[in-house]
Nucleic acid binder design. Structure first.
Lengths: 224, 224
DNA sequence: TTTAAATAATAGTATAACTATCATAATAAA
DNA sequence: TTTATTATGATAGTTATACTATTATTTAAA
């Protein structure tokens, strides 16, 4: 039996909730696969429609444009990582241990997945690593932030910052460290794969243990 | 007297070197202003041509497309930061002091500028902060990296990694720390302006001293 | 079983991202 | 100074993207 998580996302992101229909779930499923395959710039609703044997017009009933679809996918990921962290730290008291679990979730969320059948978490992770930053690097960032489109990310970071403050209440940069650990995780996986001279770590096929080790090293040394 | 730096960039990036003609320098000048104004997604060669009172076709004789123009601008920035670091650390021996200067150059390259008249360094810095990541977050990254389009970045990071190793030869992540300091500098200026709940620092109008302080804190504590 | 809602099929528009051609202006070579 | 060369401008055209609109058909709800 697959555990079905209903992820709660800001309603402004979509026109019609894709989780609520077979077509909607199909849009999510195939958009992850197609973006992973051809990249966000080449991706469009016409190609997506062909891929999933539907039509452009049908997809436009769910999302205003591909940018909002990407926000949806990235928000889904943020929410899902937050969920993973929550269940994996439920009966953990030691904040240092909690932070280790957080870092493990950032790095290899894809591995230990409580699968949602229409989301390939591993491929979604690849999409986040390659395209995730694009959701808030736009001229519309303030407007979209005002509509709450990045709420899931901010809540995730706030939660992590809380754990950091538990470890060391006098640490001055809990939010910056939290967001940096998340970004660094994605950046250095990407660097290891594409621009190896920008990092020191190596990654194998979905084997990110060196990234994890590095992030733990950074966190530990900053918080001691 | 304005000091004119001739920045050396990979020839594959452009069709005709923009530094060599008035039109070319105008393309660089106005592309920085226009991208800063309307963002890279809305930016195109037609609008740029209107802005600078030239034609689309003329611009296409310098750059194949807007993506390569962005690579040019970002490479120019990387090279310029490397140059700034070089002249500002010329007679400095202490590597710790060198790293402080590096961090200062990352954060406020725009401030102490040896101006090139067709480049508004302060606006270019804004463009880098908002759009810089997009140059290597594409499906063509491996191909373009193979052509040497990101060489300036890799060289900059290598130089910084060298200073880090001078400070602490047993530190395991000199490249990762170097690239992270650069990325973090841009990220947290951006966060402070647009997504303040992702950071702890505040920035004023081109006043980035808190970012600088934070980066120095991170570097010092990781390298001690 | 009727009605409403969702999806498909198709067509159409505006803009983006180019390419091609020719005229003209500026520069360099003869 | 004349001529050849090259750079730029003016204009037009092509293909693809990012949508919107309309109508038909299927599916689900009352």
């Amino acid at each position: 039996m697959a555990i079905e998580i209903k992820i709660s996302l800001n309603e402004g992101i979509y026109l019609r909730d894709p989780q609520d229909s077979a077509l909607g779930r199909n849009i999510i499923k195939h958009s992850i696969l197609l973006i992973e395959d051809i990249g966000f710039e080449s991706f469009n609703f016409k190609k997506l429609a062909q891929e999933m044997k539907s039509t452009e017009a049908s997809i436009y009933r769910y999302f205003e444009n591909k940018h909002l679809l990407l926000i949806y996918l990235v928000s889904w990921y943020w929410e899902w990582v937050a969920y993973l962290i929550k269940i994996n730290t439920l009966n953990i008291d030691d904040p240092k241990r909690k932070l280790e679990i957080i870092i493990n979730s950032f790095v290899s969320a894809s591995a230990d997945n409580p699968t949602t059948d229409y989301v390939d978490e591993s491929k979604l992770h690849s999409v986040i690593i390659s395209e995730g930053l694009k959701v808030y690097h736009t001229k519309e960032v303030d407007e979209e932030n005002g509509k709450g489109f990045f709420k899931n990310y901010k809540e995730l970071i706030t939660m992590v910052a809380g754990v950091i403050t538990e470890i060391n209440p006098s640490f001055e940069y809990p939010y910056a460290l939290a967001s940096n650990l998340f970004e660094m995780s994605n950046d250095h996986i990407y660097f290891a794969k594409h621009l190896p001279r920008l990092t020191d770590i190596k990654v194998g096929e979905n084997k990110y243990s060196e990234v994890e080790k590095m992030l733990n090293y950074f966190a530990t040394n900053l918080l001691r």
